[in-house]
């Protein structure tokens, strides 16, 4: 084997960082949908990703459903779970404070994790890659073709959601719920339905993330918490509520981890990313693309 050049190494770190970061960004986008409507951070977001992966494994590998059918079926199932979470839990909380809602989502994530360990056991599962496993070579660096699927879906989701929230009536109505729920319902917006819709949407996005990353990273019942923490970091770094921010935040965190591991010290790679996150927050308290004015209105 010939020695890899420094330039190729650096390129590999960048590619690895961006690909890993795109997974975090995917989770961050899911966080933002619910945040935009309710101001809460849904800590069960990581569990949607886990469920997406494992349900896909069940339908595609165990039941033998073709990819083209299993993919939408998985999204529908996870979306139904997202709707159930809202209908069975979140909606029934009386005089919800943001903090109680967060604890409720933590409770939900514990329950989902427990159920998943029952259904699927504790071992990791694999999913065949959508377009094979032969890595693509770019100037001495390599990338798994599956990552193009992850990045592709990420970009589509972010653009679609940005348009949805900024340009459509329903999207605007949803955002209005977060700014002032009472005023929103006064002008005839059905706040409860909007919250329900946000849970459904973010569950769907979580499912897509889970389905696309499982062929690369495998999936097991307790992966959700780690994804939630990284995704939360990405969302905060980019500025809560901002979809381009979520992508930017995810990619930055992924890249710092990768360059940190490659060039400095791999044991501390997660710490590097968090230190940078802290420093950025201290200078820009609303994240990179978050708006200070908007964050001032928010209750939380």
């Amino acid at each position: 084997m010939e020695k890899i050049t420094l330039a190729s190494q650096l390129l590999q770190y960048l590619i690895t960082g961006l690909t890993v970061g795109s997974v975090y960004a995917m989770v961050a986008v899911g966080f933002n949908i619910i945040y935009n409507v309710t101001e809460i951070i849904n800590f069960a977001q990581g569990e949607f990703v886990m469920l997406g992966g494992l349900i896909m494994v069940f339908l595609h590998v165990a039941m033998g459903l073709p990819l083209i059918l299993a993919f939408p079926a998985t999204i529908v199932l996870v979306t139904v779970i997202g709707i159930l979470i809202d209908r069975l839990a979140i909606r029934h909380i009386r005089h919800p404070s943001v903090f109680t809602l967060i604890i409720a989502t933590i409770a939900v994530s514990i329950i989902i994790k427990g159920m998943a360990s029952f259904i699927w056991g504790k071992d990791p599962f694999d999913l065949p890659a959508f377009s094979g496993r032969n890595p693509i070579n770019i100037l001495g660096a390599v990338i798994q073709p599956q990552y193009f699927w992850v990045i592709g879906f990420l970009v589509i989701a972010a653009i679609a959601l940005s348009i949805f929230f900024d340009r459509t009536i329903i999207g605007k109505a949803m955002s209005a719920c977060a700014d002032n729920a009472d005023a929103a319902s006064l002008v005839g917006i059905n706040v409860k339905q909007m919250v329900l819709l946000s849970f459904a949407l973010s569950a769907a996005i979580g499912a897509v993330a889970g389905i696309t990353i499982t062929p690369i990273s495998l999936m097991e019942y307790d992966r959700g918490a780690m994804l939630a923490v990284k995704g939360f970091g990405a969302a905060v770094l980019g500025g809560l509520g901002s979809f381009p921010g979520a992508i930017l935040g995810g990619l930055i965190i992924g890249s710092i981890e990768s360059f940190g591991a490659g060039l400095i010290h791999s044991g501390y790679k997660d710490a590097f990313a968090l230190i940078v996150l802290l420093i950025i927050l201290f200078f820009k308290p609303s994240g990179l693309l978050g708006s200070t004015e908007i964050s001032r209105i928010k209750r939380f």
């Binding site: 943001v98 809560l240 996150l277 927050l281 308290p285 964050s295 939380f300």
Partner: peptide, 8 residues
């Protein structure tokens, strides 16, 4: 920092 930013 406020709210979720402080939490993070």
């Amino acid at each position: 920092l406020k709210g979720h930013y402080l939490a993070m």
